[in-house]
């Protein structure tokens, strides 16, 4: 179970309750936070309750820039302190960084700061996906050329900091064969059920911005029944991954990187099997790596 937000610790009692339930049921529990409510005491409490993985959001290597971006003074300090508190008690902690147009120029420095100066044991990096609030974020989504630049920087960083950076990026740009120093995350859309703040059920948080992707509510129906019967989940379990359209349908990596984020594909093209928008944009601009293409892609 991954507990995320907004800032989940604004509902601390709920978070503690969920962690307790995970421990009773033997579920792996992870939490993502901006760090502002993670005093050393809270971090210890979360560990005692069985938290296995803590992700702390940090987007810039500079306090003024990070605080300005987050719209709150002191967030940078809080995030850095939270990473250090968690490291001290050997809680598995990562810095989580979303890359957008405004922090891309700082990415190298940010990784050095994160991995050598804080130092966090690991970091997770992905290009921000244009879902929900992220669409309106003042950071700006990455264009195709910026996406390529991010990949180039991450490849370098993978060589500088082997085994310490996990990426959520299309395999056409970074992949385990060419970049063995990086680790590769995957969203496991065929095994994911997102529960929204009002009990609504969707694939991850997609239902917040796209109500048509909400397929039930755990307050009124057995979550297992929703998981078993909802057309969305049946589709993701049985057909998603076998019928990609656009550039993903013609890409040699479709079996492995599987359109990266089907929620983003749905948000942009209205289908979970549509291509990952950044790859489709790269293809449309003639920037998609030729060697990955099997034949001419159909439409998105």
């Amino acid at each position: 179970m991954k507990i995320t937000g907004g800032e989940p610790l604004l509902e601390k009692r709920l978070v503690l309750g969920l962690l307790g339930a995970c421990r009773r049921l033997g579920l792996y529990a992870g939490l993502e936070s901006n760090g502002t409510l993670l005093s050393p005491k809270v971090v210890e409490q979360l560990k005692r309750l069985g938290l296995k993985e803590l992700g702390i959001s940090l987007d810039f290597p500079d306090p003024a820039l990070h605080d300005e971006f987050r719209g709150q003074t002191g967030v940078f300090r809080a995030a850095v302190d939270a990473v250090r508190s968690a490291s001290r008690i050997k809680l598995n902690v990562s810095v989580v960084t979303s890359v957008f147009a405004t922090n891309l120029p700082y990415l190298r420095r940010h990784a050095e700061f994160t991995l050598t100066e804080i130092p966090a044991p690991n970091m997770k990096v992905a290009g921000v996906v244009g879902l929900g609030r992220a669409r309106e974020m003042n950071g700006g989504l990455l264009g195709p050329r910026e996406y390529l630049e991010m990949a180039t920087i991450l490849r370098e960083l993978g060589r500088l900091f082997p085994d310490r950076i996990a990426v959520g990026l299309p395999w056409s740009l970074v992949n385990p064969m060419d970049d063995p120093g990086l680790s590769f995350g995957s969203c496991h859309a065929d095994g994911t059920m997102g529960i929204l703040p009002d009990g609504g059920v969707s694939l991850c948080g997609l239902g917040v911005s796209r109500p048509e992707a909400v397929v039930g509510n755990v307050l009124t129906r057995d979550p297992l029944a929703i998981w078993r019967d909802a057309e969305l989940f049946v589709y993701l379990r049985t057909r998603w991954g076998q019928e990609f359209s656009g550039v993903c349908g013609a890409c040699i990596f479709h079996r492995y990187c599987a359109n990266v984020c089907p929620a983003y594909a749905f948000e942009v093209y209205g289908s979970f099997s549509a291509p990952f928008p950044p790859c489709q944009h790269l293809f449309e601009e003639g920037l998609f790596p030729e060697y990955c293409l099997l034949d001419s892609p159909g439409g998105a």
């Binding site: 079996r255 492995y256 099997l294």
Partner: peptide, 22 residues
């Protein structure tokens, strides 16, 4: 099949099942 060969290694892509062999 698709042979992707680099100086430091490579992989083969099998079109029949989409698998990759390093």
């Amino acid at each position: 099949v698709r042979w992707v060969l680099r100086d430091n290694g490579g992989f083969v892509y099998f079109p029949e099942d989409g698998k990759i062999e390093v």
